[in-house]
Amino acid sequence: MNTNGTKIIAKDLVLNFGGVTALNNVSFELREGEILAIIGPNGAGKTCVLNCINGFYRPQNGKIIFEGYDLTKMKPHKVAKLGLARTFQNIELYTGLSTLDNLMAARHNLIKYNFLTAGLYFGWAHRQEMEHRRIVEDIIDFLEMAPIRYKPVGSLPYGQRKRVELGRALALEPKVLLLDEPMAGMNVEEKEDMARFILDTFELKNIPIIIIEHDMGLVMDIADRIIVLDFGQKIAEGTPEEIKTNPEVIRAYLGTE
């Protein structure tokens, strides 16, 4: 079920934590071949949207449909298996593993052998390992991570860890990429690199992307459409030009009455 070019449809999402309403009747869609940005002040509920898509949070009301599958009641690892990969706002890597193994770990569901053939290794498991290694090495080249291939990611500087996280998401061979502030806390140069990688990925693999980002200049540059959240409400949606001039958005950001 692929309703006229939409990849993800989210309808009437409601998410409460005790008294806090993190999402209040939020609806949006992600279309085929677009970069959709979610912006909004701190605590607006942006990360919660991704967590709902992932199956990490269960919205009290509403539905999220991806290619005909209802994601709202699905376990996160099942959602990942469908081809939704993400990065996290506060880098969540496997710190003890190398860059290479972080990426290999993301191919978990694509590698087809069980623990018995893994134990024997030679033959089937070995061939698969080599095959997937080749694919992962391509991603390492693509993201220019060759020098940190064998480094345990726990020892990498912040900017590089963000990059490894993007690589790990790509290694999952996603159909949709969800990026939670991929450039937060980076210097200008790192941000430019990251933006380039994201745009290259988008063009090369032609996968739709949802990106949460605070840097307005960047968002305006790379997003096809933007939705704006404020206190769990969607207050605006449109092209960068429309958002720039939207009075609601200006009010939310400048905090004037």
Binding site: N54, F56, V79, F88, E92, L93, T95, L97, A105, L172
Partner: peptide, 11 residues
């Protein structure tokens, strides 16, 4: 190392 990320990344 990170059960949250592991789950979200398909394990």
């Amino acid at each position: 190392d990170n059960d949250l990320a592991a789950e979200v990344m398909g394990v």
